[in-house]
Design a protein around this nucleic acid. Structure first.
Lengths: 226, 226
DNA sequence: CGGAATATTGATCAAGATCAAAGCGAGTGG
DNA sequence: CCACTCGCTTTGATCTTGATCAATATTCCG
């Protein structure tokens, strides 16, 4: 069940504010950083909603973003988390088929899609980068499909390894709540909690705090990972 | 459990045979049809395997293809079916992360990836088509993620509607077995069978033959579809 | 310190998996 | 043409995993 409620349902956001200063190599990514406008989003604030016109593309500067859909029975399925450095919102269709909001207070770089598209129509390298970005997303989504047919323990193990590889160090500071994890893995918070304690009892992980996870025995997790 | 065993494990296939004659509009798709070589694949014959170098891209001319991964416990998860007209195998990485084989005897157009890539580096329109093709795949994969967290009955309903929209007429002739459907939906063959009989008993569908499905009450299925 | 949100733990329930046995249909050979 | 087989599908009985319901625990903030 969805317990997380957006604290802000203020009208949609158009980019406003200063230019970004971060730099990257490569035409496309560099352009995003140059063209984009940095915008702050508060925890649970909506970035875009399902059915809205897909006018912008986004890059996470800090914080975390979840992309999800609300099913008609009220459950929320999170299809992906985007962390610092990740680009999201690139959909070729006119409108978003999913919603996106901030998991925690975040900074997001916002770029007009039309700008990117005109860029790709001139710069072949940019077009190819755009493609490989989308293809990487596709691959992750395929992996997520595979994840969703595994057992609860395996899903948790996969999630932890995934987070471990995306966040430096083997003490992981996760930005998301148990509800977020549950909605991402297609489980309930109770099952997520139970599996985490199980893994802690079997000495595979340690939980110094609810959003702080230490991977003690990576190979044990990998074994579960299928 | 995987009961389907590849009847042929002959060495990988390089394109051989005549040119295609089908035509399409648009630079990229047109090129596939012109450049590609038509190849037949027998039922259950492998088109490519996980870990192999991704040297070709493919377009289904007739028949059906499944793209899947075998989990380490032996289960098979099918991430997508490709039917006549669909393009698959477009992965930017060097090697395939999934396997693909023919669901039934099929004809597939095979194109060297390098050829396509050089095409996209010259033709901006082609590059954009390639992107929108991949993005469409991404969207379908996102929808598949959402499907996998629904109940068994809902998954079957979604599957039937999906097939109904992809195959003309409301009497659907499906190329895949119950095992294929089960592995696609993350269910067992028994559950698939039971849900189909349930839907038949509730007059939502008719089953004149096991691979022939008539949608009698589309709105009933849509209601289940969430 | 108090109160709300978040997380853990326990008891029970239900959906779907598993185990087991027929049933059916197409192709083969007598 | 019929009997037999093989692969696929259906149906039934039981078991298991994870959901649900319920009660604390903990953490985070004002």
């Amino acid at each position: 069940m969805l317990t997380q409620v957006a604290t802000s349902s203020s009208s949609r956001h158009a980019p406003a504010g200063g230019r970004s200063t971060t730099s990257d190599t490569g035409g496309f990514l560099a352009s995003i950083n140059l063209i984009g406008a940095k915008m702050p989003f508060a925890r649970n604030e909506e970035i875009y909603g399902e059915g809205e016109e897909a006018e912008y593309a986004y890059k996470v500067l800090s914080g975390a973003v979840r992309v999800y859909k609300i099913l008609n029975d009220g459950r929320r399925q999170i299809s992906a988390f985007y962390l610092a450095g990740d680009i999201f919102g690139l959909e070729p269709g006119g409108e978003h088929s999913f919603s996106a909001d901030a998991v925690i207070d975040s900074e997001v770089l916002v770029v007009k899609r039309a700008t990117l598209m005109s860029l790709t129509s001139k710069d072949v390298g940019a077009a190819q980068q755009l493609w490989s970005l989308t293809a990487r997303d596709l691959q992750q989504m395929q992996d997520h499909v595979v994840l969703l047919v595994k057992s609860a323990r395996e899903r948790i193990a996969s999630f932890l390894l995934q987070m471990g590889s995306r966040i430096a160090g083997n003490e992981i500071e996760i930005p998301m709540s148990r509800q977020d994890i549950a909605d991402y893995l297609g489980l309930t918070i109770e099952t997520v909690s139970r599996m985490l304690t199980q893994l802690e009892n079997s000495a595979a992980i340690a939980l110094p705090a609810s959003r702080r996870i230490v991977i003690r025995n990576k190979s044990a997790l990998t074994r579960l990972n299928s």
